[in-house]
Design a protein around this nucleic acid. Sequence first.
DNA 1: CCTCACCTTCACGTGAACGTGAAGGTGAGG
DNA 2: CCTCACCTTCACGTTCACGTGAAGGTGAGG
Lengths: 179, 179
Amino acid sequence: MTHTTETRLLRINEVAAEAGLTTRAIRYYEEIGLLEPAARSGGDYRLYDQSDLERLLFIRSLRDDAGFSLAQIRQLLEDEVARERNRERFRETRDPAERRAILVDACTRVDRQIEILEAKAARLATMIDEAQARRRHLDDHLAEVDGGPSPHPERQAAQGQPAADGSEPRVAQPSKPAR
Amino acid sequence: MTHTTETRLLRINEVAAEAGLTTRAIRYYEEIGLLEPAARSGGDYRLYDQSDLERLLFIRSLRDDAGFSLAQIRQLLEDEVARERNRERFRETRDPAERRAILVDACTRVDRQIEILEAKAARLATMIDEAQARRRHLDDHLAEVDGGPSPHPERQAAQGQPAADGSEPRVAQPSKPAR
DNA sequence: CCTCACCTTCACGTGAACGTGAAGGTGAGG
DNA sequence: CCTCACCTTCACGTTCACGTGAAGGTGAGG
């Protein structure tokens, strides 16, 4: 008898709590083909294992943190599954041409994933930069108001009168004078 | 007469084309308070200026590239507007305490923006790393299949027999053996 | 003045991503 | 065996982000 190792199967309610999702959401994800429970009980209860939980956590982070639609998530997960199948097929052949074809297909999928992800990341990076620039500018003003010319040590004090109004370097996102 | 400078006002159809949105979407954004046209014509036609167009482009990039909901975008834009108001108030007072309060408020808003953005970016970065690791692994296999031990020059050739099955370093996103 | 393309405001329709009962089955504890 | 909490499958309701007419006004060209 494996005594502590084996992390028993979870019912939908439990896995939902662990994943931070509702039971309805999980059933919905099953409806649209995002995951199937590892097993069913006698009375057709859905039973989930540890990998299901991880998959749900992954789905949730894609949805919440990365902001993907379930359709995009489906695409990403399908590519993942295809990758798995490719590995199978790869192992089952010795023909170099076929192996090459499998690898090329895999590359195409991965490249597509990367492209999708990087487009998002690039825009986010720009926005973060802009926000941080504003933050630094505010810090300077704060230091200036707080204790005269002597902001934080690592950035040299803005000598003279550093445009003592509240002017900031506009980066993006315009807005009209009186709106 | 200002002859070329002045970039005349655009009607909804034109600004929609330039922004890559539909007229309906733009009217909807107005409904939910994301932007108001710069002006209205005699017959109540919506008229947009250059800053409106930029704002629409910004909204679109937030929606498409960053994957924000319109509610989140509204939040971000509102913070932006608040920032604008703060600058006004800042200029209109000389009281250091008040100025400080304004700046602290601004910092809070910016920090919240940054927090939201960085959460998204962090998750995306991880995913990109994982995808690129897979991509590199595939490249190695490809090179191996293509021309024996001699992958691309900048990465040293995997000597010996580099686990000639299709094994990849699993990074995240599990999947069960036979699903 | 007429036409025709574009505009306006309702107002209902739609797909995605669930929420919310309804009606009945399941399973561990007392 | 009974209870009670949790499960099942319909199936309709809801919010978001628009789409799609309908019915009528606008404005530049011929």
